[in-house]
Amino acid sequence: MASPTRLDKAVSQVTDLSRSDAKRAAKAQRISVNGEVVTDPAAKVQTSDALCLDGGPLLKPGPCYIMLNKPLGYVSATKDPEHPTVLDLIDEPNKGRLHIAGRLDIDTTGLVLLTDDGQWSHKVTSPTYHCEKTYYVQLADRIEEAAVAKVARGIWLKNEKRRTKPARLEILFANEVRITIGEGRYHQVKRMFAALGNKVLVLHREKIGDIPLDEGLREGEYRLLTPDEIASVKK
Results as ranks from 00 to 15, higher is better:
132 E>I: 09
17 L>K: 02
215 E>M: 10
70 K>R: 03
212 P>K: 05
64 C>V: 15
170 E>R: 13
167 A>S: 14
109 T>G: 10
234 K>L: 13
203 L>S: 07
18 S>G: 00
39 T>L: 02
173 F>W: 13
198 N>P: 08
16 D>Q: 13
173 F>T: 08
183 E>C: 08
28 A>S: 13
80 D>V: 02
111 L>M: 07
28 A>M: 05
162 R>T: 15
89 L>G: 08
63 P>A: 11
217 L>H: 10
114 L>N: 11
147 A>Q: 05
222 Y>S: 06
192 M>V: 05
84 P>G: 07
199 K>E: 14
210 D>H: 10
15 T>K: 02
59 L>H: 12
164 T>F: 02
211 I>N: 05
48 S>T: 15
21 D>C: 00
90 I>Y: 10
32 S>L: 11
232 S>K: 03
2 A>L: 10
129 Y>S: 01
71 P>V: 09
167 A>I: 05
69 N>S: 01
41 P>V: 00
115 T>M: 05
185 R>W: 03
226 T>H: 10
136 Y>V: 02
169 L>G: 08
27 K>Q: 01
145 E>M: 10
111 L>C: 03
152 A>S: 15
11 V>I: 15
48 S>V: 11
180 T>N: 10
21 D>P: 01
119 Q>P: 10
3 S>W: 13
10 A>V: 12
196 L>C: 06
155 I>N: 08
196 L>V: 03
143 I>S: 05
19 R>V: 00
93 P>N: 13
152 A>E: 15
208 I>F: 07
84 P>I: 03
49 D>S: 03
87 L>K: 01
145 E>V: 11
214 D>G: 06
171 I>G: 11
95 K>P: 05
185 R>D: 01
89 L>E: 03
187 H>G: 04
